[in-house]
């Protein structure tokens, strides 16, 4: 894939990809469902570089969710290699994976997953607490990040006082606040109306322009089209991997 800083046909700029962040080789994942063994992934090889904007697509049962959990270090592969920033995470223990998730991965969920009784600011501070950042720095960084996503005036609001779009912005701020290597968004617009969805995708575009690496998991072509590269899964295998048109 030849990076070009010139706008393409749709007027978008594709930024040059950087160093290798995710290096997955021949990864498979088996689940036991009662007596049945399910092959969720059957040997997936995938490389993702810094400053890429990638969409992972596939119908339900394609292994899309399993791959996302794997990429997000929420789950480990049954077999195969997974290097994250050169570190082998395939056989890490729970707490080591937790530290990787804390420092390297920013999650954005379909259902936002904000803590209902905490303010926007407290929600964004949470990853910094787990990272051991002192209180005043924590507050400063969380406030700055909230301002960056356009919620500077909503910091003391609780989730139920915010609109869906605002909630997802809080979640995105929470994902960004620890400066992770990748942002992993799972159907980020799935619970939003289309107008708000477009706004969120514009925010992702903006984040990508700032040099963030973004992986969006979706089953919607419209959403996937915002990415620069689309990986399609089917039956636990990569069906296609190429630039988004």
């Amino acid at each position: 894939m030849a990076p070009s800083l010139a706008p393409d046909l749709t007027g978008r700029v594709t930024r040059p990809a950087g160093s290798l962040v995710i290096d997955i080789a021949d990864v498979s994942k088996l689940y036991k469902m009662g007596d049945e063994i399910i092959h969720a992934l059957r040997g997936v090889t995938l490389e993702i570089r810094r400053n890429e904007y990638l969409a992972i697509m596939g119908p339900s049962g394609s292994g899309k969710s399993t791959l996302m959990n794997m990429l997000g270090c929420l789950d480990t592969p049954t077999a195969g290699r997974y290097l994250f920033n050169g570190k082998n995470v395939a056989h890490m223990a729970d707490d080591e994976l937790a530290d990787i998730r804390n420092r390297e991965i920013g999650f954005v969920f379909q259902t936002f997953n904000l803590l209902p009784r905490s303010t926007a600011l407290a929600n964004v501070e949470l990853p910094l607490i787990y990272a051991g950042v002192p209180a005043h720095t924590r507050r400063e960084r969380a406030a700055q990040t909230l301002t960056d996503v356009g919620l500077g005036d909503r910091m003391t609001h609780k989730p139920n006082e915010l609109s869906g779009g605002q909630r997802q912005r809080v979640a995105i701020a929470r994902a960004l606040v620890n400066h992770p290597s990748i942002i992993l968004a799972d159907e980020p617009t799935g619970n939003l109306d289309s107008k708000t969805g477009v706004e969120i995708m514009e925010l992702f575009e903006h984040l990508y322009d700032q040099g963030n690496t973004i992986i969006v998991v979706t089953h919607e072509e419209d959403i996937a089209r915002h990415a620069r590269r689309i990986v399609r899964l089917r039956d636990g295998l990569i069906e296609s991997d190429g630039p988004a048109l």
């Binding site: 929420l74 729970d94 937790a98 998730r101 997953n113 949470l126 990853p127 787990y130 929470r174």
Partner: peptide
Amino acid sequence: TKEIGTRKALGARRRT
């Protein structure tokens, strides 16, 4: 349970 999942995704260890 879901909150626990979210916290773990954000980097909470078992101890936390």
